[in-house]
Design a binder for these strands. Structure first.
Lengths: 144, 144
DNA sequence: ATTGACCTGTGAGCGACTCACAGGTTTTAA
DNA sequence: TTAAAACCTGTGAGTCGCTCACAGGTCAAT
């Protein structure tokens, strides 16, 4: 298959396919008659993997090295594992952080919701901003 | 306080402070004698808010508009709320996605862990790649 | 034969920094 | 007091991972 088809089936931008090819992540054959690139179903799998890996926050160089390790078929590759483990740690941390912030946002939004007309005033926003780092205060009125 | 001090207390790169200042997110006074920028504690709060908001995925223009709405003190601003709600949805989605992928990674790593010497071979990686989209198969041997 | 949809390479633009440079200022400390 | 170190200034360029724009070549359908 050629660029367009590959891109369509993997639901990515054709330019991304071209970009990955330029970067050496995909290595299609060339049709010598018209110089078009010919991708295999192997390339499709690599592309899909690459996209998922990107979502996980792997860098293109990392993905490239994982992929090329997988290419020469049965090399033991502790490096891939290191990359993986390292990335997993980062993902866990990010997940935690995101979770906290999500809760913070929800609280803030609830505080807004319960206002007379549902629109916040400057004060609310100020409080939100001032106590952003302090979940105990954000979204709650002080006792007074 | 000046650039360096502000940056240190907020634990960001001084260049980020300069960048935010260039972008109009922070508006320090100028010391006319030496042309240095003078930041207030208000700026510190804005900076901290901006960093948290960035982690949540708000864009700089969004942050800028939230901050300037908060500046002219008591404007009701449904826009800020819209941005906030919209972003919350995205965060929820991202959280879900990240969660799934984290589990996927853990499974994969466990499968590796249980291998004889703890290092994966080409086959394992291939399976991981081939069935990346298919949690039922990744990290498990087929029945045979 | 012409249209339109594809393909090619290259180069530039994006957001949000980050770094490098060249020069001016302030602080420290010998 | 003066030299060095540590700051500050603006500007411009580099980074990553795309994405788009351009100019031109190829191919299938009408």
């Amino acid at each position: 298959m050629r660029v367009g088809e590959l891109a369509r089936t993997a639901r990515v931008n054709p330019d991304t396919v071209r970009f990955y090819t330029r970067e050496g992540l995909l290595r299609p054959d060339r049709n010598p008659s018209n110089n078009y690139q010919e991708y295999s179903s192997d390339d499709l799998q690599k592309l899909r993997f690459a996209r998922k890996a990107r979502q996980l926050g792997f860098s293109l160089p990392e993905i490239k090295s994982i992929l090329s390790h997988a290419d020469d078929h049965h090399s033991p590759c502790p490096m891939v594992r290191e990359v993986f483990e390292h990335r997993l740690n980062e993902v866990e941390a990010q997940l935690q952080e995101l979770h906290n912030l999500r809760d913070r946002m929800k609280n803030a939004l609830e505080a807004w919701q319960s206002m007379p007309d549902g629109t916040p005033d400057g004060h609310t926003i100020c409080r939100l901003i001032e106590h952003w780092d302090d979940p105990a205060k954000a979204g709650k009125e002080e006792s007074r």
